[in-house]
Design a protein around this nucleic acid. Sequence first.
DNA 1: ACTCGGTCCTGAAGGC
DNA 2: TGCCTTCAGGACCGAG
Length: 290
Amino acid sequence: MPELPEVETVCRGLEAALAGKRITRVIARRPDLRIPLPEGFGQRLTGARITHFSRRAKYILAALSTGETLIIHLGMSGRVLISHNCAKTRPGAFHHTQHGPAKTDKHDHVVIEAEDGTTATYNDHRRFGLMDLAATNEIASHKFFKGLGPEPLDAGFDAATLSAALKSKNTPIKSALLDQRVVAGLGNIYVCEALYRAGISPKRRASTIAGARAVRLLPEIKAVLREAIKAGGSTLRDFAHADGELGYFQHKFRVYDREGEPCRTKGCKGTIRRIVQAGRSTFFCSQCQR
DNA sequence: ACTCGGTCCTGAAGGC
DNA sequence: TGCCTTCAGGACCGAG
């Protein structure tokens, strides 16, 4: 389930592997991802040089020398597998990058090959992900991006900003934080984790978070994201986590997927509960989250 | 304008 | 053992 930290990790892996290189070949085995690949997808990419990769919310943006930007969303099962033509730089930890030609998985939907033989293979068994191409100077007004809220790790995202966004919201805070218009990039896991760290009940109305509770919540959102990026990034040097895995951070979940297990807050006798909010699982401790 | 539920997809896991 | 059902999730879309 790639959320902001996983997407950031994949993005850094792509930057290290492909930035500055020219695309020499594109294979679109399966054009029907969540939305169809754009018209002329392969032709528009082939020959282009990738200037750099960046991330906005859960989207990866690859700026191209052609004036277009390749937009990638990993959905919930999307991965990017990187393989190098040179055996010495091959990570080896992943079966997809063993010696010889990489084995083609039936969910390898798009393969992008660079001039030096480096390939990035987009694999997505549920096809919730997507790729699109748009003019770089129109990205900000592109439908995927125009309604997005602030980046949670930007310095400008402070308690006052969060407060203002929550003030008029009548949904539970859990749902509000999943709303990409409020803050961009959070998903189910990190919302649960941030609320737990801040000691705030996911059931509480978002409007009641504005003010003092937002001051408490804001640094926890930033902290959990930074820690998760660090966990992903720590294994990035060998590109092992350019594939969207959760890195080692999944072992650090304090509430997510821990239903029935004891709360880890010191002195708390609570048990982690699971409830469903807006069709999504929420994990929390009703003892120390108020 | 705002909120909610349904939808897409398929592999994993649980039930009988 | 094996079939069937259910669940997971991000973002969009339509209904209320």
